[in-house]
């Protein structure tokens, strides 16, 4: 039941965003609102088992959603900018020292691992290649491994990020 409500609510929100500016009730016209409610109920009936696979609804907490809205344009965007300057430097100079290392994430939930893997892919010099599903360790292709790091068995995830501690943010949002 709660999965149905969450899915239908998300679908209705998406419909409202896509049709903003169509009429006079707020930004919407009456026909768009009625159609949106009908389509949201239909979507919720069909897709409730796809959107909410695990039975935890941690992200419904408004404080976590607010943190997520701060996280994406704030710390994440800072690291994204730094990553692109780094890639620009490597494209021009071709100074690379690549390798695949094992990174200890310290996160327990699937959502946390998912967010960390995606954040790693878009942050400086790193690209997530694989996941060890028993220990939740990530395998990271690093374009420029520091001297001596290739001999270490496991690297902590906080060492990958220079300016902002992204794993701590993800732990606050997802766990």
């Amino acid at each position: 039941m709660i999965a149905f409500l969450v899915t239908a609510g998300a679908a209705f929100l998406m419909y409202l965003i896509l049709t903003a500016g169509s009429g006079t009730i707020g930004f919407w016209s009456l026909s768009e609102l009625v159609m949106g409610v009908l389509l949201a109920i239909l979507t919720g009936l069909i897709a409730r088992n796809f959107l909410c696979r695990s039975k935890s609804f941690r992200l419904l907490d408004p404080r976590r959603l607010l943190l997520l809205l701060v996280y994406v344009p704030g710390p994440f965007f800072v690291e994204l900018t730094k990553a692109n300057l780094d890639v620009a430097y490597r494209v021009i100079t071709m100074k690379i020292r690549p390798g695949i290392v094992r990174v200890h994430s310290g996160l327990k939930t699937d959502l946390g691992i998912f967010m960390l893997a995606n954040s790693i892919t878009l942050t400086p010099g790193t690209l997530s290649v694989g996941i060890d599903e028993e220990t939740n360790d990530l395998f990271i292709h690093n374009i420029n491994i520091g001297e001596g790091d290739e001999k270490r068995e496991v690297i902590e995830s906080t060492e990958l990020f220079g300016l902002v501690n992204l794993p701590a943010w993800i732990r606050r949002i997802a766990e």
Binding site: R97, P98, I100, F139, E153
Partner: peptide
């Protein structure tokens, strides 16, 4: 991966 100095995923054999 070419030129790689280390490949832990290959060692882990998942």
């Amino acid at each position: 991966p070419m030129l790689a100095v280390v490949d832990r995923l290959e060692e882990a054999k998942l």
